[in-house]
Amino acid sequence: MKPSNRPPVELHRLISSALKDKTLVERIRSDPRPVYESFGVPHDEQTLLLEDPRNAMSRIGVHPNLQLKLLGILGLLELSMVSVEPYIAQIRKSHGQDS
């Protein structure tokens, strides 16, 4: 059993790796257990994550920004995301910048 103050470093590495690996993202979405296993995520954490990822990450102590990213990968984000591209275009146009 890991010490209670040890952060979930394996899961942190997994999430950070997924940000640069679309294949890994697809594997997490389709069948996360083998991915958790390959990154050495402890079995007690795996069980919690497979049951309820949102609550699990809070209980396990996942870094909040990485929680946000895994929730996004799993399609569980409550906050609606938008593209800022049209607003950037609006700002540029507002003072004659169309480039």
């Binding site: 906050l79 609606s80 995301m81 938008v82 800022v84 607003y87 609006q90 700002i91 507002s94 003072h95």
Partner: peptide, 19 residues
């Protein structure tokens, strides 16, 4: 940034501020 839905005027004020 977030969705303008339900907060259209506030969103516009933010865009104008950024501009």
């Amino acid at each position: 940034f977030g969705s303008a839905n339900g907060a259209e005027q506030a969103t516009q004020r933010i865009v104008e501020g950024m501009a």
